[in-house]
Design a protein around this nucleic acid. Structure first.
Lengths: 130, 130
DNA sequence: CTAGACCTTGACGCCTACGTCAAGGCAAAG
DNA sequence: CTTTGCCTTGACGTAGGCGTCAAGGTCTAG
């Protein structure tokens, strides 16, 4: 299939596919006229990349998965290098989530304090009515 | 004081201060020779910006706080507009943390599955020894 | 022959918060 | 006068992942 069909089937733009090729992921055979030609394996490959990107992986981080598939393994994460990426990402996520949680608490505290110091506006929920 | 001193006292670069000015935050008086001249209030202003940036606020999001201080209020969050930013940020953080948590769980699940399917490598912790 | 759909490469745009260099002005010390 | 240090504006570079022309080649239907 050519680039347009692969793009449509994978749900991405042709620009995206050319970009992946420029990054060394997703190499393409060429027809006589210079057109890129892809096989079904390439569809799996692009889908693997998109799945990881949805998880917030950068393109470089998807490379081990891509190479794993290209090496003929059943899945992108059938190789130790891919598992390492999973582990690093997990660690990163844990740190990030922790930091964001801390920030959330600080912002929440600032909000409460500032609301208490601001006389105007809507009254606090616990205000006595009547 | 001039830009170099303010930069040092605030712990930022002169480039950063000029950038803030170009964005319409942190306006500066000018000496006869064209040099920027700042007062102590500007130091508070810059510190307010940095605090918020440490919380992950974008520069635009710090504008209400800056304007609040410039209006003569005791703190950057002494104005309703600033509180609105706090609230929006809290909501954003909650959503983001939730999404990241979901991703974390999915990546963790993928890792466990892939580790189980990979025969080689270090044995699971529960393996019998000897 | 021509229109139209598809393909090619090349290159600039975007967005954020500055870093970093370039060329040159101003002021005080020696 | 010269050095030294601080200041000025201007403008390009960075990172990520493409979007969006631009100019032109290819193939097919009518």
């Amino acid at each position: 299939m050519r680039i347009g069909e692969l793009a449509e089937r994978a749900g991405v733009s042709t620009r995206t596919l050319r970009y992946y090729e420029s990054r060394g992921l997703l190499p393409a055979r060429r027809a006589v006229n210079g057109y890129r030609v892809y096989g079904d394996g390439d569809l799996r490959l692009v889908r693997q990349i998109r799945t990881l990107q949805d998880f917030g992986f950068g393109l470089e981080e998807t490379r081990p998965f891509v190479e794993c598939l290209q090496a003929g393994h059943p899945a992108g994460d059938s190789c130790p290098a891919s598992l390492d990426v999973y582990r690093r990402k997990l660690a990163e996520l844990d740190v990030l989530i922790g930091e964001l949680g801390a920030v959330r608490d600080q912002v929440g505290a600032q909000l409460l304090r500032a609301e208490a110091e601001l006389p105007g506006g809507p009254e606090p929920r616990c205000e006595l009515r009547g």
